[in-house]
């Protein structure tokens, strides 16, 4: 039974991940509606939740068209890659004590590796479409994701240094007293921004940038293949949220001793939900920067901040060791 547990959990994550992403599309639209003084989808079913089903049916029944001018194999491969990569990322997420698929000692690196795989999906999708907008979107995403990848990893070094481990369970447990969001405020700041950029969510959705590039890298996509990209994007959103919670907001720990009565999984998912809401708020409030602004923000602001963060963290750690 104990051996089966990870398998069951994996299947559960697979199903709930997909379902969650689907519901998230509806939820995001409703939430945007709230903040933009309108309703959002409210026609189908209670609160418009039926919209999820309707969208799914629509996407499922769309003509599965592959442009004749595209690179067929790569064109099909691209959307699957992002879903697979994002799904794999969930393997190391510690939802609660004992509630994870696998606890590897390089869990954090595995997560970083999986998210960086997503860039292939976008890049190949853009390239295979053989469309100038798609290509531009692909190029942008390559540059954007490679740049932000750098300090996304670096921003977490503070956390790793404090914990002394790459294992996510260790990291969560290290936050039993104080969450890293306080001690690693700069790391959090950089990681959140890099996380948005990695999952190319608004306001950093330059690879799609519908005002300039029609639909960017997925201009030529439709039907289920398009749905896969969307799925990948929302999975990415959830994954990043999970990781933010895990790394900076104490994972399954309840915020104060008050909530000890509630199960750790509740606290984990509650915190994740709040982070997702925060991402939606970002989308509702912040306009998209220009491409050059995005790059200069990355290289001229974010990178120095991370380096400073590492420097300070290291110094403090050394100082504390010395003091001991």
């Amino acid at each position: 039974m104990a051996e089966l547990l990870p398998v069951i959990l994996a299947l559960t994550i697979l199903v709930s991940g997909v379902a969650g992403a689907a519901i998230l599309t509806w939820f995001e639209r409703r939430l945007l509606g709230v903040w933009q003084d309108r309703y959002g989808p409210n026609r189908l079913g209670p609160l418009g939740i039926g919209q999820v089903l309707a969208d799914m049916i629509k996407l499922l029944f769309k003509d599965d068209w592959i442009p004749p001018f595209s690179d067929r194999v790569v064109f099909i491969f691209a959307p699957t890659a992002i879903v697979v990569a994002m799904m794999m990322g969930f393997a190391v997420v510690p939802f609660a004590p004992q509630m994870m698929i696998i606890d590897v000692n390089i869990g954090l690196l595995f997560f970083l590796g999986m998210t960086s795989l997503a860039v292939y999906s976008v890049l190949l999708g853009g390239l295979a479409s053989n469309n100038k907008y798609a290509l531009l979107g692909g190029l942008r995403s390559a540059a954007q994701m490679v740049s932000y990848e750098v300090f996304m990893g670096l921003s977490l070094m503070g956390v790793v240094m404090i914990t002394g481990s790459f294992s996510l369970v260790d990291i969560v447990e290290a936050q039993a007293d104080i969450w890293f969001c306080f001690t690693q405020i700069l790391g959090l700041f950089v990681f959140v921004i890099a996380g948005i950029a990695e999952s190319h969510r608004l306001p950093f959705d330059l690879p799609e940038a519908e005002h300039e590039l029609t639909a960017g890298f997925h201009t030529e996509y439709g039907g289920m293949k398009f749905a896969m990209f969307m799925l990948g994007e929302y999975l990415g959103l959830m994954l990043i949220s999970c990781m933010i919670v895990t790394l900076f907001f104490g994972g399954w720990h309840s915020p104060i001793s008050l909530g000890d009565g509630l199960p750790p999984f509740f606290w984990f998912s509650f915190k994740t939900f709040v982070v997702i809401c925060f991402f939606v708020l970002l989308r509702a409030a912040i306009p998209r920067p220009r491409y050059d602004q995005l790059m200069s923000l990355g290289w001229k602001v974010m990178l120095p901040i991370t380096l400073v963060n590492i420097l300070i963290t290291g110094a403090v750690l050394l100082w504390m060791e010395g003091a001991v």
Partner: peptide
């Protein structure tokens, strides 16, 4: 901006149904 948008959580929708 984010704060201003967040405040709209409590305003009524303008939508005419």
């Amino acid at each position: 901006t984010m704060w201003e948008v967040l405040k709209h959580t409590f305003t009524k929708a303008e939508t005419v149904e």
